[in-house]
Amino acid sequence: MSEPVLALEGLTVTFGSARGTARVVDGVDWAVHPGQTLAVVGESGSGKSMTVLSATGLAPRGAKVTGTVRLLGEELTAMSDADRRRARGRHIGFVYQDPMTSLNPVMTVGRQVSEACEEHLGMSKQEGRKRAVELLGLVGIPSPEERVDNYPHQFSGGMRQRVVIAMALANEPEVLIADEATTALDVTTQAQILELVAGLQERLGTAVVWITHDLGVVAGIADRVVVMYGGRIIEQGKVDDLFADPAHPYTQALLAARPQPGVRADRLLTIAGTPPLPTELPPGCAFWPRCPVRGDARCEHEEPPLVEVAPGHEVRSFYRADPAVTEERSA
């Protein structure tokens, strides 16, 4: 396989607070290759967003980040702040959940798109504007020559997210990072955006890191999936393997918690309790207090290792969770 575009090794993010240290991200490894989509899945507090923010040098103040991050083979973590900012601006595009927070309300969308081209690609104002029109057309905004002079509030939610994607693509980045990019959108609009990104990825060969809580979206777009819980990776694998044969009790439970189309079960399977706060992580396996299986005596006080259960399919567990056993225990 080709060199990864973005690779994380042992990424750990901690926050010191009066009540002790919070490990928000704990030893995360993953890599994304050109043209591929890596989905990072998790609930609130799982550390899925913090992983990517910290890896790209966007961690909030007070965060202590350790581990290695390589962008196109270069070690991002070893760079000076200015170099890292430049590398990030040049090679990574970001799309966040709420397009309104990524857009400046008092600037035309054209200016916002072209500014990135001018700054990182050294284009002139005229070239930047031309490029902006081109990009707005690329992301499917009708009559981009006119819309380029509009302000963000003149666009609908879905169109705004397209503008943000155009901004993210302005520098022809090697990686596109989408953090819950379709969560705030309606399903029909979400379908449009997903289709758009898939099409762009095919044409431009961009690697995509898609952070989401929506397993349906993941199933549709991902090549590989990383499932996070309590700041750690608890399972990762190829999308087909992971959905066909989820190995961690948490992954299994997540998949079972959604109502299945066409199946009107009387009761949904659920996981008791709520996801833990990073400050309140239990010792041992982070999922242990909510785990319906608890298949090993060590779960309570020892963190299970990531073990390979099939080629390229890893799970953080002392035992190989067997769905049949799981069903039986919960009955």
Binding site: G216, V218, A219, G220, R258
Partner: peptide, 21 residues
């Protein structure tokens, strides 16, 4: 347009994409 948590089904899904907003 509703995605389902089934990669195989998602791949062969015939999506009726609506245009516009």
């Amino acid at each position: 347009a509703v995605p389902t948590a089934d990669p195989a089904r998602e791949r062969e899904r015939r999506r009726i994409t609506l245009h516009g907003d």
